[in-house]
Design a protein around this nucleic acid. Structure first.
Lengths: 342, 342
DNA sequence: CTGAAAGCGCTTACAG
DNA sequence: CTGAAAGCGCTTACAG
């Protein structure tokens, strides 16, 4: 027996297709008694709606916008690239993704772009957001107009965003702390910490998790005050270089954000790559190379391809009022050693 | 301008819908000149086929079979569970998944079931296979009948399976070796290795990778001969217990396969959980608990949910002759410490 | 509050 | 080798 269709429902309930559709989609304007009849027919025939047919009939189109701060940051570049690739792949499923590159560290511009989005042609927004009053307000305004917003990579929990697509950043920091502690078993010394900016929630959370583990579990490892390289290789190289020159007891480095090309250069200049235990984030091409040649000891990663796909699936579910599969949408903290590189 | 449809193509090329469909689906029986015209129209109008509409018209149904050896092995249970869950979720997309539980370590029965599959109602098969002549032959026979087969968790590379859904097991073994080596920095001693069976390719590969790293990079750590617990808690507990009692210089354990409830019991009985560095596979409920309480030091995991979904996507792509996205289908070797548990 | 009819973008016998 | 027409399972004006 083939699966039941709306026609089967209609004849079983003794009503027309239009009425079936009304109760299926909760459009209202149907007598309770009629609703009852239809629901009984649904249960009896074990009716399950064919989504593809519904999409086709509705001429449904998803128009999503992805906002990514693409400067010199390779990870963000990769993320934008994955979103563009996804947009091509999912054209056959009637979803279009417009990727807008925004200047990094420019809250005003970000808020402006969010506010300028056309509600008529935008069915959902994914944004690598910053924690800023105007940005939050812009997110809330979109949500108010019924446009679902998901935050990507860095969350804005106080906003009305519907979902966060990214890793648990304090867990990532704790993981970095544990690896550092275990890799430096039996040694005593100071640990340098380089972030992009302590105004970015994801960086702050990673730092918090890292500190917490080191202080409570590895008291022989003492962290230095965070230096901020603005996710920029040149600045990072300069700041880290000075720090290394001033402190000869540094045995570990946690690189929280971007600018790792500068980190690698600073370490190599001083032949410090193997002496110092380095844990960094994001498996970009240069980080990968540093892991292979022994300059880096571990890399924590979030998969930009998975994040782009997850953001799309979540936005689609949100627009359709469908449920989200938490297991599928959880973004893992990938740990890479030299041995499990993809 | 809305996207082009088959109607637009037909009028642009001056042919009928049927002809458009013939060239779109390479059905043959069309004059080269006509094909040419249609292809030009496709290029000019930037035509992209609407998959949902095609599915609907074709009344396409995917009927997949998943074969999973479910005995006492929790990971396999979880995998079967994920496949069942997936089957419910994807009913709306017209894919049905029949999960067949097979007795573990029974090659004859597995081959028999594979051979008994009805080619008429089976559009694809995912199987946790063993490396056995009859099993391989059964896989090859299915492939010969045009039914795509993917291997799950453990590969049979010499067969005609179309794809392998699982982790790189030698890389997993190397990862275990590196973690063990680094966690035991500065210490000397023997390392126990417990597998399920050295007749299982995935276990052999993990062992190989592990040995390789230890011998070449950590010569102070010497592995003992592998003991085989048949993925069974009781047997594992017994064998490992004896080994621990006979060797008081064991400082590490690599648990390659299942039966970790027995491993945990053997360690706890001897108060050896914290003294011995333990690395195990698969984040099942009891392994998770052992990680949290410090009995285990790291867990390598493959995500059964991801594997089930990946197998389904790959089988679907294979049936449709669509391309596979390697980035999306690569199964990661997840490393879990206490800190990045989901 | 309810229904008849047309249409979404494809595919599929069937006829020529 | 090619085409006209019907149909897949839904939704949507429109009419009543």
């Amino acid at each position: 027996m083939a699966r039941a269709t709306v026609h089967d429902l209609a004849s079983a309930a003794g009503v027309s297709l239009a009425t079936i559709d009304r109760v299926l989609n909760h459009r209202g304007g149907v007598r309770p008694a009629t609703i009852e009849k239809v629901e009984q027919a649904m249960a009896k025939l074990n009716y399950r709606r064919d989504m593809a047919a519904a999409m086709l009939a509705k001429q449904q189109e998803y128009r999503f916008v992805f906002l990514v701060p693409v400067g010199v940051n390779t990870f963000m570049r990769n993320l934008a690239g994955e979103a563009i690739r996804l947009s091509e792949l999912s054209a056959a499923e009637r979803v279009s993704i417009r990727v807008i590159e925004i200047p990094p560290f420019d809250d005003d511009r970000l808020a402006e772009i969010l506010n300028g989005l056309d509600a008529g042609t935008t069915s959902g927004v994914a944004v690598v957001a910053t924690e800023n009053a105007q940005v939050r307000q812009a997110i809330d305004r979109l949500a108010g107009r019924g446009i679902p917003v998901v935050t990507l990579v860095s969350d804005v929990p106080s906003s009305r965003r519907a979902h966060f697509v990214g890793i648990d950043n304090s867990a990532a920091g704790r993981t970095a702390g544990s690896l550092m502690g275990r890799f430096l078993t039996g040694r005593k010394g100071r640990i340098a910490v380089l972030a992009g900016s302590m105004l970015l929630r994801d960086h702050v959370e990673r730092h918090f998790g890292f500190e917490r583990v080191l202080r409570t579990e590895y008291p022989d490892l003492v962290t230095l005050p965070v230096i901020e390289g603005r996710d920029n290789g040149a600045i990072a190289q300069d700041l880290l270089g000075k720090l290394l020159d001033q402190n000869d007891d540094i045995i570990g480095l946690y690189s929280i954000g971007g600018g790792n090309r500068g980190v690698i250069a600073a370490l190599k200049q001083r032949n410090a790559g193997t002496r110092i235990c380095v844990i960094a984030h994001e498996l970009t091409a240069h980080c990968r190379e540093a892991l292979v040649d022994g300059t880096f000891d571990a890399i924590l990663n979030q998969d930009p391809g998975h994040e782009a796909r997850s953001a799309m699936r979540v936005l689609r579910a949100l627009t359709d009022g469908q449920p989200i599969d938490p297991g599928q949408e959880r973004i893992r903290i990938d740990i890479y050693l030299r041995d499990n590189l993809p």
